[in-house]
Simulated assay, not measured.
Amino acid sequence: MHPDPHMHLFLHHTRAGELRAEASTHHHPRTTGRPSRGLRTRVGWTLVEVGLKLAAPPRSASATP
């Protein structure tokens, strides 16, 4: 026995509306437009590492082991 597909869709839309309403009442600190400090730090250090690799002279292909 299969449930009525229209009832499933109705329940889905009802729950989605409830979740949207609940989400709009909460204040999320990360929605201020600024990335988190941890992400900003990681991206900064990654850019420093890339810059240092670009500025370093190329290694010779015939390096001795």
Rank of each mutant, 00 (worst) to 15 (best):
G38A: 08
V50F: 13
D4F: 00
A21L: 13
G38T: 06
K53V: 12
H27W: 06
G44L: 02
H28A: 03
R34F: 08
A55C: 09
T64Y: 11
R34D: 05
H12S: 10
T14S: 06
R40W: 01
H13L: 13
G38H: 08
R30Y: 14
G44K: 02
S60A: 11
E22M: 09
P57Y: 00
R15I: 10
P57D: 02
M1C: 08
L52A: 04
L52N: 10
S62W: 15
P57R: 04
H12L: 14
T25D: 07
H2Y: 06
T25Y: 07
V48C: 01
A23Q: 07
G38N: 06
P3G: 01
H26L: 11
T32E: 09
T46P: 01
L52T: 07
R37G: 02
T41M: 01
V43E: 09
M7V: 15
R42T: 05
F10C: 02
E22D: 13
A56K: 15
M1K: 11
R30T: 10
D4M: 00
A55N: 11
R40C: 00
W45A: 03
T25I: 07
H27V: 04
G44E: 01
H13Y: 14
S36T: 09
T14F: 12
S24D: 13
G33D: 04
G38P: 03
V43D: 09
A23H: 08
F10L: 06
E49N: 14
T25W: 10
A23I: 06
H27S: 05
H27M: 03
T31S: 08
S24L: 07
P58S: 03
T31F: 06
K53A: 12
T31I: 04
E18Q: 15
H27R: 07
R37Y: 06
A61H: 09
H8C: 03
T46Q: 12
E18A: 08
T31H: 13
E18Y: 07
E49R: 15
D4P: 01
R40M: 00
R42Q: 04
V43A: 04
R15L: 12
F10R: 14
A16T: 14
H2F: 02
T64D: 10
P58K: 08
A16D: 11
S36Y: 04
F10W: 09
H26I: 13
S60I: 07
A23P: 00
S24F: 02
P58G: 02
P57Q: 02
